[in-house]
Simulated assay, not measured.
Amino acid sequence: MTDKVIENNQVVVMGEIVSDFVFSHEIFGEGFYMVDVNVPRLSDSSDVIPLMVSERLLDVQEDYKGLNVMVQGQFRSYNRHEERKNRLVLSVFAREIEFVDETPESSKTNQIYLDGYICKEPIYRKTPLGREIADLLLAVNRPYGKSDYIPCICWGRNARFASNFSVGTRCEIWGRIQSREYMKRISDDDAEKRVAYEVSVSKLELVEE
């Protein structure tokens, strides 16, 4: 049963480590640390994706900046309470890490598969240039009654298709993890730059139950 649940959330990313390890939390004596990996896109841009790594998987005291890694794991979420509100924090939970000589410039450097349930009404819109977009929030089950809540963005025909999904609809999604900068208004006179993470969907299918 546990293996089946794990199969519903699969991530593979390849890229360059660009930060030091920063302590996140400890569970049953096992420490978890955050580190950033720069993952190239097919275009000249890239995504900086946060990894959560166990101290039992890697020596987190070492400096790995500039080294290329291939990471297999899951896209996880948790709610962090700040400013009297909950903020959804996303990262790739690393199950396996392998150092590689170089990062190939291909779509295989950033792949994700999710099997979950729509937990919020899809938001469908068009850009000023007429491009169709739909925002989804997917609940992906985890062992022991937990779930991860993953924001997903669909384009074109997929956006129109997904706009008709209702809450509770089960679907499979394939795509990549992307980072996006935005300005968060703190007060009338102040705003700060933040980074949001979401799944850019390349393919999605309904699952009949």
Rank of each mutant, 00 (worst) to 15 (best):
C119S: 01
P104L: 05
T109A: 11
P104T: 14
Y78T: 09
K108N: 14
D101I: 08
P122A: 06
Y64C: 04
E102L: 08
R125D: 12
Q72D: 10
M70P: 05
L136C: 09
G116M: 10
Y117N: 10
G66F: 05
V92T: 06
N86I: 04
D101A: 04
R80E: 15
I123M: 12
L114F: 01
R76F: 01
D101V: 02
P104R: 10
L90I: 13
P122I: 06
K65L: 00
I118C: 11
L88W: 04
V89F: 07
L136P: 14
E96H: 15
Q61L: 00
R87D: 02
N79W: 12
Q61M: 00
I118H: 15
E121W: 08
E132C: 05
C119P: 11
I118E: 14
E132P: 09
G130W: 02
H81C: 02
G130E: 08
D101K: 06
D115E: 11
L136K: 04
K108T: 15
Y64G: 02
E98F: 08
F93E: 05
R95M: 11
N110R: 13
Y64E: 10
A134C: 15
R125Y: 10
Q111Y: 05
A134P: 02
I133Q: 02
E102I: 01
R131C: 06
K120D: 14
L138E: 06
L88A: 08
T127A: 00
S91N: 09
L67E: 09
N110A: 00
C119K: 15
D101W: 01
S77R: 15
S106Y: 15
Y113Q: 02
D101C: 14
A94I: 08
S91K: 06
Y124C: 00
H81D: 01
L129D: 14
E132S: 06
L129P: 09
M70F: 02
V89A: 05
S91M: 07
I118P: 08
L90T: 06
G130N: 12
H81G: 08
K85E: 13
V69A: 03
G73H: 11
I112K: 05
S107H: 03
